[in-house]
Simulated scan of single mutants.
Amino acid sequence: MNSRQESVRVLIVDDEELVRMALRLVIEGEPDLTVVAEAADAESALAAAEELRPDVVLMDVRMPGRDGLSTTRELLGRPAPPRVLMLTTFDSDELVLGALRSGALGFVLKDTRPAQLVDAVRTVADGHPVLSPAATARVIAAATAPHSAHSRDTSREAARKRLSALTARELDTARAIADGLGNPQIAERLRISVGTVKAHTSSLFAKLGVENRVQIALLVRDAEH
């Protein structure tokens, strides 16, 4: 991964030309971000990623033909994969859930404000998840809907076994994440500092073998539902 003194290399993947154009304008308006290529479909995205080795792939969830979910899975299965930030309009929660389970570092709405979008790209480039509390809550709600395929996929017992490795305070933190709380809100609920929340969250990533907060939340919901 590039250091912060170097430009973060971004590949934009979206089937809509106007969306790609708007994203390019936003990203290339920042001195530390560079768009190395655009792709309108999965095959072009995979080829561009192989040739250009971007740091971050901004991936549309839904595209004609092969969708962003399967494309993300293939990208993340390759050696030294890029970081993937999903684009969604929130009419495709199931696909987003699958991508997050596969290791994508987060997702942003297509109508996200430019400043928030570039911050999200930088955060993902540094290896950190980008999941707002509101977005987390909405995705978790989709995952635990009565007819959700994802709510049936993961064994309750398997999730409980993974969570059994946590300390009581780490489990409290995991449950607060599952409720869609951000770090300041978790700190207030548990009466600890934000720094301690961050430490517990880092421990959760390591102990549970997950990449982002939604994966933590899904484990909690799988164990308790």
Rank of each mutant, 00 (worst) to 15 (best):
R4H: 13
E6V: 04
E6C: 04
S7M: 15
V8L: 12
R9G: 08
R9W: 11
I12G: 00
V13C: 01
R20G: 12
E30N: 14
L33W: 04
A37V: 10
A39F: 03
D41R: 00
A42M: 09
S44D: 11
S44Y: 01
A45D: 01
A48Q: 00
E50I: 07
V56A: 09
V57D: 02
V57N: 01
V61M: 15
P64F: 09
G68I: 07
L69F: 08
S70L: 13
T72V: 04
L75F: 14
R78Q: 14
P82N: 15
V84I: 15
S92N: 13
V96Y: 05
L97C: 02
G98W: 05
G98L: 03
A104W: 14
A115D: 12
V118M: 06
V121Q: 09
T123K: 13
A125S: 11
G127W: 07
G127V: 05
H128P: 06
A141E: 02
T144D: 00
A145S: 08
R156A: 15
R162T: 14
L166Y: 02
R175N: 15
I177Q: 08
S193F: 11
S193I: 08
G195T: 09
A199Y: 09
S203C: 11
A206Q: 14
K207I: 04
G209S: 03
R213Y: 13
I216E: 00
L218W: 02
D222L: 00
